[in-house]
Design a protein around this nucleic acid. Structure first.
Length: 588
RNA sequence: CGGGGCGUAGCGCAGCCUGGUAGCGCACCUGCCUUGGGCGCAGGGGGUCGUAGGUUCAAAUCCUAUCGCCCCGACCA
């Protein structure tokens, strides 16, 4: 029997000052976690119990489609060099040296380790498909850990990897994960959505993220209430209304207009009496690229957007393959020969091919400008802009790409209904890796014809603490939070109003015993505290049901309180077990 | 990486500007009291003021460095 008086459940009346989001505040206040360092947390009794339940669900479901491994977190440098990620991962990878000075890394995912096993021991198509998974800590040296457990440096992750003989096989493994993830998150009692995702620098093709809507999240998801379209904003598109182009002025060639002191899109549009939709927004960015010999060098990347559109950096990143930063004032002057505010694409020799013209600046133009005519942009001359700018005629972009951030209310690309945008937290991510690791690390199997082929891979992750965090974000009020019964540390807290009253106490203890025999996780709040203290704690710590044992025991009844709804019902003590059979079935 | 803020008792904070050897609330311990929403009374314990150096007769307080933690930004071009 779990007696509260003997357990370590350090609840706090006030949240630590540095906690911002609800889940962080409440998990600390409820005595689930304590912070050890930035982005590093200890799990105490209640937190670990909840964790165990989540892991158990994940493991049960994963065991239906795959095999659990236990892999080291400490990886030799050579392994990461083989895949190319030693250099690629930069500062996000934790690195350390052993006493001999040998470089090691702390695993942030396990593609390399899994592939190293595969390449040694997978020989034949007859051994495929394989799905291998593990549930283990992962380490990432995040540039900025934040929001309590939402972005941390050490976390528990279920990661799995599939190996198939061909793309059709990968489709099956992918689908299995998709379905399994749905079952896992359903069982965890989360309200989630599945969105199309950017596969990022991993080079994959298809990718889905499992998202829980919450203002505490770090991702933006675009979705349509009219159909099932849903995508991460890094990937989302929308149907644009047709914009009427301006008529050419004069001879139709770029025409300089005096725009003294008019620097912003808004100002210039107003000054010239046109819509920002007919303006070009010129963004001057700088990328740090590595050349063949491994030296980093700067590369100018200029982006053109429709005046009223916003750049989505993830899309740009995907389009150019490198991270960018805004140019500094001096860099702007060097390229454009003009101060910011009057920048445009004219008069600069743009690279035709990003790879071949390695010395020349890159001009990437958003697709929303493709086919447009007579736009207005900066003249690269202080206090002047140009009219009659037509992409492809007056200047040649290195490439066109979808770079635009979708905004709420734009038309759904599928059905045309207005799109909505929500912030959300990512709890799971599945994607088709393809041949990246098989190729770089040299995994090969023989196919039916005795020919050597590369196995095709998928990789799939679930953030264990994010399930807990998302559940707290999804169910809380000013007094605390409630977890879905399946992942709560206890399903029921039994609170005798006065433990010094023998009748009350023994009735409560009897109820605890009977519920435990029936298989429920129950905690007995046997502390000699005033009822108010016990109720406040019960409300705080995430347990979905409370049984209050008070004076009414003499009449043979107790109160059952549902935390999420505050609904209170009197229940005959004799019927308590059946009552919970009913209640827990209903609340999943 | 850039910008801002904060480090004083387990938690939340005051004191710092104007140097004089540390305080409040909650929590904790003891006793009494109380028992359906953080009850009351009395007594009590606990802090190298993040760290190091400097200025000074004297530093939580002023100066310098450093470490840590939190937030914002990686977008009027």
């Amino acid at each position: 029997m779990h007696r509260w008086s003997e357990l370590f459940i350090p609840t706090l009346r006030e949240a630590p000052a540095d906690a911002e989001v609800a889940s962080h505040k409440f998990l600390v206040r409820a005595g689930y976690i304590r912070q050890l360092a930035a982005g590093i947390y200890s799990y105490l009794f209640l937190g670990k119990r909840s964790f165990n339940k989540i892991i158990r669900i994940v493991r049960e479901e994963m065991d239906r489609i795959g095999q659990e491994f236990y892999l080291p977190a400490l990886h030799p440098r050579e392994l990461w060099e083989a895949s190319g990620r030693w250099a690629l991962m930069g500062d996000n990878l934790f690195r350390l040296k052993d006493r001999k000075g040998t470089d090691l890394a702390l695993g942030m995912t396990e593609e390399e380790v899994m592939t190293s096993i595969a390449l040694k021991d997978l020989r034949s198509y007859k051994q495929l498909p394989q799905i291998w998974y593990q549930i283990a800590p992962k380490f990432r040296d995040e540039p900025r850990p934040r929001s309590g457990l939402l972005r941390v440096r050490q976390f528990m992750m279920k990661d799995s990897y599939s190996f198939d003989i061909d793309a059709a096989g990968l489709d099956v493994s992918y689908r299995k994960h998709y379905d399994t993830y749905c079952r896992i998150f359903d069982r965890c009692g989360l309200k989630y959505m599945v969105v199309e995702a950017d596969s990022g620098a991993m080079g994959g093709k298809e990718s889905h993220e499992f998202m829980v809507r919450t203002p505490a999240g770090e991702d933006q998801i675009v979705s349509c209430d009219g159909c099932n379209y849903a995508a991460n904003i890094e990937k989302a598109t929308s149907k644009l209304e047709v914009v009427e182009d301006l008529k050419p002025e004069g001879d139709g060639k770029p025409l300089e207009v005096h725009t003294p002191g008019q620097k912003t899109i808004e100002d210039v549009a107003k000054f010239l009496g046109v819509s920002p939709k007919n303006k070009i927004k010129t963004l001057a960015l700088m990328a740090e690229e590595k050349d063949a010999s491994g030296n980093t060098k700067l590369r100018e990347i200029v982006v053109l957007m429709r005046g009223d559109h916003q750049l989505n950096e993830a899309k740009l990143n995907a389009a150019v393959g490198v991270a960018t930063r805004p140019m500094e004032e001096s860099e702007i002057r060097a390229l454009f020969k003009s101060p910011a505010g009057y920048l445009g694409p004219i008069g600069i020799e743009w690279g035709k091919d990003r790879k071949k013209d390695a010395e020349k600046p890159v001009l990437v133009v958003d697709k929303a400008l493709e086919g447009r005519t007579n736009l207005i942009g900066g003249a690269n001359k202080e206090n002047y802009h140009l009219k009659n700018l037509t992409p492809g005629k007056d200047f040649d972009p290195t490439a066109y790409a979808d770079l635009r951030a979708v905004t709420a209310g734009e038309a759904c690309p599928n059905c045309g209904k207005p799109l909505r945008i929500d912030t959300a937290v990512e709890i799971g991510h599945i994607f088709k890796l393809g041949y990246r690791y098989s190729e770089s690390m040299g995994a090969r199997v023989l196919d039916k014809n005795g020919k050597e082929v590369m196995p095709i891979m998928g990789s799939y992750g679930i953030g264990i603490e994010r399930i807990l965090t998302a559940a707290v974000e999804q169910g809380n009020d000013e007094n605390g939070f409630w977890l879905p019964p399946a992942i709560a540390p206890f399903e029921i807290v039994v609170s005798p109003v006065n433990v010094k009253d023998e009748t009350v106490r023994s009735a409560a203890e009897d109820i605890v015993k009977r519920l435990e025999v029936a298989g429920y996780d129950v905690i007995f709040d046997d502390r000699d505290e005033r009822p108010g203290v016990k109720f406040k704690d019960a409300d705080l710590v995430g347990i979905p049901f409370r049984i209050t044992v008070g004076k009414k025991v003499t009449e043979g009844t107790v109160e059952v309180v549902q935390r999420s709804t505050r609904e209170v019902r009197d229940v005959r003590i004799s019927a308590i077990v059946e009552t919970f059979g009913e209640l827990l079935r209903r609340s999943g």
